[in-house]
């Protein structure tokens, strides 16, 4: 998402953070049982939305993976790119055009999954097993 306009107003991430903090700090402590559980789920859900907005705005995170997928699909004579990239990959594996036990394919699919988990659940345990995961649990690169 763009943080460059500098209109002196909160951007979408700020608004989501404010709502999440309100739910977590003010609402959740007053709830019990299932409602307290659902409040926690709600807070986590807003976190997914916030991280996804930021990732969509900064396509650099996924771009190398997408380029790798496109190259792999092109090498096997498949249509590439765009919104249907995952669909093309999935179909090529299902039909056997891409060998399901090819180490390069498996490595790519693993990193694609890790990129999604880093948005949807940055604290998920298995992410620690993927050394080059891009996610906000890692310090941002120096400018």
């Amino acid at each position: 998402m763009s943080r460059g306009l500098n209109l002196g107003e909160p951007d979408a991430a700020d608004l989501l953070q404010a709502v999440a903090d309100f739910l977590a700090q003010t609402v959740a402590p007053r709830l019990e049982g299932r409602e307290a559980f659902l409040a926690k789920v709600a807070v986590n859900t807003l976190g997914i939305v916030r991280r996804q907005l930021m990732q969509d705005g900064d396509g650099a995170l996924l771009q190398p993976l997408n380029a790798e997928a496109d190259a792999m699909l092109a090498a096997s004579g498949q249509m590439t790119g765009g919104q249907d990239r995952l669909r093309a990959l999935a179909d090529a594996i299902r039909s056997g055009v891409l060998a399901h036990d090819d180490p390069a394919l498996r490595s790519l699919v693993l990193r694609l999954a890790a990129a999604r988990v880093s948005v949807e659940q940055p604290a998920y345990g298995s992410l620690k097993l993927v050394p080059d995961t891009t996610g906000e649990h890692q310090p941002p690169p120096q400018a």
């Binding site: 659902l38 999954a113 949807e120 298995s126 992410l127």
Partner: peptide, 27 residues
């Protein structure tokens, strides 16, 4: 229409990651 049911759809990616780690013998 609970938030739990909506959000759980986004837990599918964790199983994609785990599947690849299991198949690679890393988990």
């Amino acid at each position: 229409r609970s938030v739990e049911r909506a959000a759980i759809g986004r837990r599918t990616s964790e199983t994609e990651l785990d599947l690849m780690l299991l198949l690679e013998g890393r988990l």
